[in-house]
């Protein structure tokens, strides 16, 4: 099946590896992901004030474009996914929003393009069992842990992604690559998001709690689907490294691990 891929701004600049590895893995799995033409920034946050329609224009324009191609819209960045899902929900369920936004854009769109996150494609359309079969370089012996953050999971009524309090999709993904999925308490807590721009100290504290909790549970690598979570978790590692000269915890986009596991392993491993 062919999908419309919406990479979003950050994947074209600061998080290029997220998109590159997603495309590499898609090819290995036989998924055809074709970038939407002429997309714009989704706006990064969903407008929470009831009378703010303007921030819906950009996501709805991309949704309508995917609709014209008759394809599902696939997202990678958790923030883009959040915005698209909720914008779609608003267009479907809120007549005033639909009339204002589609009228202004002069498009005929009723909210029926299916927005799916890449992880959902892996889970529901490829299947973790099939991924396990396709893995050529299993990440055996690696203790990895999911960091979900906020935007994929909440609000559940609109995101329909996983159980917001006890999600499992990323752990299932980690296990399908042959690694061990470690549980720790802070995996669905907020990393501080954009507060790292305005309230650095607060973001540092929030990230510190997450990292220390992961460290206590023996985590060797964190797995994320959001460039901002990645930035914050990688930036504030000093909460681990400062004390007792400990080591930091590497942060990976889930697609980096997927592409790595799907690729042929190094020669010496192949011989064994």
């Amino acid at each position: 099946m062919r999908y419309s891929l919406y990479p979003g701004c950050t994947l074209k600049t600061k998080a290029k590896v997220f998109e590159e590895t997603a495309l590499e893995a898609a090819e290995a799995l036989g998924l055809e992901m074709v970038e939407l033409e002429e997309w714009q920034c989704c706006g990064a946050v969903y407008p929470l004030a009831k009378d703010e329609y303007f921030p819906l224009l950009s996501p709805v324009r991309s949704l309508a474009a995917a609709g014209e191609r008759g394809e599902k819209l696939v997202t990678l960045c958790a923030a883009c996914h959040h915005v698209f899902k909720r914008a779609n929900h608003a267009i479907k369920g809120d007549r005033e929003a639909r009339e204002k936004v589609t009228g202004y854009l002069e498009v005929d769109y009723a909210g029926d393009v299916e927005v799916v996150h890449y992880l959902e494609v892996l889970k529901n359309e490829v299947g973790f069992d099939r991924i396990r079969e396709k893995v050529k370089s299993p990440l055996e012996g690696k203790k990895l842990a999911a960091y979900y953050g906020c935007l994929l999971l909440r609000p559940e009524k609109e995101m329909h992604f996983d159980d917001p309090e006890n999600p499992t999709i990323l752990e299932d993904f980690i296990r399908s690559l042959g690694a061990e999925a470690v549980q720790y308490p802070y995996r669905t807590d907020c990393c501080g998001a954009y507060l790292s721009i305005t309230e650095e100290g607060l973001a540092r504290d929030t990230v510190g709690k997450i990292l220390k909790s992961a460290q206590r549970n023996g985590v060797e690598g964190l797995v994320v689907a959001c460039p901002l979570c990645h930035y914050n978790l990688a930036k504030y590692q000093e909460s681990l490294t400062d004390t007792r000269g400990g080591e930091g915890i590497p942060v990976h986009y889930f697609t980096e691990l997927l592409a790595q596991a799907l690729a042929e392993g190094p020669a010496e491993e192949e011989r064994t």
Partner: peptide, 12 residues
């Protein structure tokens, strides 16, 4: 260093 996502969210 900050991802676009952070700066845009902040301004929004």
């Amino acid at each position: 260093d900050a991802p676009q996502q952070a700066i845009i969210s902040g301004f929004r």
